[in-house]
């Protein structure tokens, strides 16, 4: 991670260092910037960080380590059950678990589609919001709606919209003479339909971040290019997109991780059905842990999921870095 240098701090358009704030004593001679990191300073840092470190240790680091370890045991949620270290037994069993790999495959399709489609949709919206259009204020408010909705509510809303008998979507289709579709019930449409919902709820966040990135591109670049006669498409391709590359990388990576690990939306929307067509790995693992009560085996699945995410991300990062170099040279 590089140094964070926000142009101005979020939340205060004026900037905190505005001259005239009462505490600013002007013209005081400066001390040398970075003194030797003294012992005192280290103690001070520790004191500042401890309140945050404590909950993180107890409720995040310890559980995480325990969770990884559980994946190598036969622990269960049965009464008075004892758990033993079983080494790689869970994993050899997992190799032959066709249900898990099917859910894994669905999870990958889902996460990649959600990440890419969200990016494309958000990029379009961000460009429109960045263009000098009317009604900017109200559109920006409306565009944030999906972000504000709790996932459970999102699922409830879209169940209503996708309803095969009383949903507005099918009513709309039938009004223009098309046949209604059983969106969440039909095997071929269930996964795409759920992906659309995830994209819908992910658009605002990505749009906001892309918008922020766009507003950092110096307007002179665009103007100079426009004077040179470059079309808006070319300007987008040669100025906007390259400048946004780091943002795009961050957004797609995060969206991929979050989608792959997401639970609430699909749990309420389809519960993995029909016929397991939307059984994301998180759902499958949840069932293994809290219905089948095989927590050790479920933790092993969790470990495999982490491994997969890390692999995909490293691959993506590698490609990204190489492309970055190619552009620079």
């Amino acid at each position: 991670m590089t140094t964070l240098t926000p142009t101005r701090p979020p939340g205060d358009p004026g900037g905190p260092g505005t001259p005239g704030s009462p505490e600013t004593p002007g013209g005081v001679p400066r001390r040398p910037r970075r003194g030797t990191a003294s012992r005192a300073q280290r103690t001070e840092a520790a004191a500042l960080v401890i309140p945050a470190t404590l909950p993180i240790l107890v409720f995040s680091v310890i559980p995480l380590v325990t969770g990884i370890y559980l994946g190598f045991t036969n622990s269960t949620l049965r009464r008075n059950s004892t758990s033993e270290f079983t080494g790689l037994e869970n994993y050899s069993r997992l190799l032959g678990d066709t249900f898990f790999w099917e859910s894994f495959r669905i999870g990958l399709i889902w996460a990649v589609s959600v990440a890419l489609l969200t990016l494309v949709a958000a990029l379009g919206l961000a460009l429109l919001l960045n263009a000098d259009l009317k009604f900017k204020g109200i559109t920006r408010v409306l565009a944030l709606i999906p972000w504000a909705m709790p996932p459970v509510v999102v699922a409830i809303v879209w169940r209503l919209i996708y309803s095969p008998t009383a949903g507005p979507l099918n009513a709309g289709l039938e009004a223009v003479g098309l046949e209604g579709v059983n969106w969440l019930g039909d095997f071929s449409t269930a996964l795409p339909a759920v992906i659309v919902v995830a994209v819908w709820s992910g658009i605002p966040q990505s749009t906001v971040l892309l918008l922020a990135g766009m507003q950092q591109i110096p307007i002179e670049q665009h103007e100079a290019a426009a004077v040179d006669g470059a079309s808006s498409l070319r300007r987008f391709w040669h100025i906007t997109l390259p400048a946004l590359r780091p943002v795009i990388f961050a957004i797609t990576s995060l969206d991929f991780i979050w989608s792959f690990n997401s639970f609430g939306l699909v749990y309420v929307l389809t519960e993995g059905g029909p016929g397991g067509k939307t059984m994301l790995p998180m759902l499958f693992t949840y069932l293994e842990a809290f219905t089948n009560r095989n927590t050790g085996y479920a933790a092993a699945m969790g470990n495999v999921m982490v491994l997969a995410v890390v692999l995909v991300l490293s691959g993506y990062l590698f490609v990204q870095l190489r492309r970055g170099k190619a552009v620079q040279s």
Partner: peptide, 17 residues
């Protein structure tokens, strides 16, 4: 209960579809 939720229900759904 396990067989019902993880095996029979999805299989029957697939068959009926």
């Amino acid at each position: 209960q396990q067989w019902n939720e993880t095996v029979a229900t999805p299989a029957l759904q697939r068959y009926l579809a």
